[in-house]
Nucleic acid binder design. Sequence first.
DNA 1: CAGGATCCCGTCGGATACTG
DNA 2: CAGTATCCGACGGGATCCTG
Lengths: 123, 123
Amino acid sequence: MAKVQNREEICPVTAVQRLIAGKWKIVILWHLSHKTRRFNELQKLLPEVSRGVLTQQLRDLERDGLVHREVYKEVPPKVEYSLTEIGQSFIPVLDVIAKWGKYYINNTRLSPGPDLARTGSAD
Amino acid sequence: MAKVQNREEICPVTAVQRLIAGKWKIVILWHLSHKTRRFNELQKLLPEVSRGVLTQQLRDLERDGLVHREVYKEVPPKVEYSLTEIGQSFIPVLDVIAKWGKYYINNTRLSPGPDLARTGSAD
DNA sequence: CAGGATCCCGTCGGATACTG
DNA sequence: CAGTATCCGACGGGATCCTG
């Protein structure tokens, strides 16, 4: 029995934690789950995220195979981000997370602390 | 429009991201979802995490209402960690995450730790 | 418009030493 | 056994400037 790398030894939970480690990863995926977005659109959807960071996180997601980056060779430039197939398979997870998030918010005396982003995901 | 509580304006997804922001949060919750654990047990389950960090993340989870910390005034000391009610409501999320994590691992040439070149071998 | 490249800085995580 | 306290290095993320 060839022990195919440690692939089967990897903790799935840890793997996911690594994927969504970035501060804005989940929210980005959340937005992309609704529809394909241009870079500019994402910026407007996430005003708190600077360009550089947004780019970086998108690159991470792309590298991890969750996001597809489509570059249109035009002037002015146009780049569209969308979910890959695997990325789309993550949507149910996002749904569960969002759903539980609402539940959590409604059942906790939360301390917003640093302001939480409003990303228009309320229902 | 008295925005008394920004509770409804908070992005649930972002809220969750904050909760599980710590590097080991999800894994800790995962372990606690199986059964109540003593601090020592958690340490053995997570050899890579140092005591201080483990303590900190547990404290975060406790502060966020997901984990209950039961201290037995004995000698030697004994502390048990378990999921609160809200913490338990998070288990389905963990399940979905774990399930998707497996799917992701099996459908990606990734390298969560060691190396495993993902160049070439186009699909 | 969509970044790439830098710099800066706060935070997080890891290690160590000490305590009840 | 289960922490606490502390220091430090690494990384992440924000801002700014520059490019195709």
